[in-house]
Design a protein around this nucleic acid. Structure first.
Lengths: 150, 150
DNA sequence: GCAGTATAGTTTCACTTGCAACCATTTGCA
DNA sequence: TGCAAATGGTTGCAAGTGAAACTATACTGC
């Protein structure tokens, strides 16, 4: 017997996650998309470069830490480098690798965008009570735990 | 003083939502993408047509219920109609409107895919305990409540 | 009943994204 | 050494996506 009970899309977890994620991301993205001509992928690259600034990162490491594939990273970095927002050198000792760092201009973008991103997150969480916030943390840890890039 | 404290991407809520949503959606999509040559948008159209089968839906209504824009719906429907999976008639009394229904072949797709989609959802929820599941429901309702298409 | 406006849906165009093939360099191992 | 396999990164192509223009039909007020 076929399962004709139709799927209720609007109660379906993956669907709701997709809507929520898109809505939230777009809301934040709008902030920097037009103002800084910065795409989501580029913003992610900037964020990880800011975080692991010390030694400079290879593109592959950026890809790991952003859950983006290497093509997306390559293109984002190309655009960022062209705009003078990241500095791309070649790794001495392994000339396949690039060594990526934020330029002063890149840091300026980060410093302008990061607080706004955090504010958005705060606004979102403000709609939940304390218990729900804790619970959401736990849920995300559990569900993302099994994911490769976590 | 600039906010140089770098954003921790991997703890950032919008980022984690995005990863989770993509991972989950892709896992399900793989099931039908290659097997049935069916895109995500097409699957959503099939799901709502299955759900509101009685009278046949207009494309606009499909768009509302899938959180897709009318262009995406138009294209998905065109592809589905070409594959004989939906039947497209013209509304008598308002010839601008189309009246969309699943064909037998469309129902067959639905009946094959829906249980697998549900199984994926179950697997996902199985990683949470009862309290967390309830909490997730509440959280999604709250966070999606303010969203236009809900 | 007719001009202007609103609505349903499609088409077009510019842009993004993902996959696969590709080049360069390095590593592993006979 | 020296050649096959692996790795870092880029490029090309095909498919997906969104905004705006366009067509066709229906409604509204005069």
């Amino acid at each position: 017997m076929p399962d004709r009970a139709p799927l209720e899309l609007e109660r379906f977890l993956p669907y709701r996650l997709s809507i929520l994620s898109n809505t939230v991301s777009q809301a934040i993205a709008r902030e920097y998309q037009t103002r800084f001509d910065l795409g989501v992928t580029e913003w992610r690259v900037i964020a990880v470069l800011a975080r692991y600034d010390g030694e400079g990162l290879a593109a592959r490491e950026v890809a790991e830490r952003t859950a983006m594939d290497k093509v997306a990273v390559s293109r984002a970095v190309a655009r960022l480098a062209a705009a003078g927002r990241v500095i791309r050198r070649t790794h001495r000792g392994d000339r396949r690798r690039s060594v990526l760092r934020l330029s002063a201009r890149g840091w300026a973008i980060h410093d302008a965008v990061a607080p706004r991103a955090r504010a958005h997150e705060r606004d979102l969480l403000a709609r939940l009570d304390v218990g729900e916030r804790e619970c959401l943390e736990r849920i995300l840890d559990k569900l993302l735990g099994a994911v490769p890039t976590a």
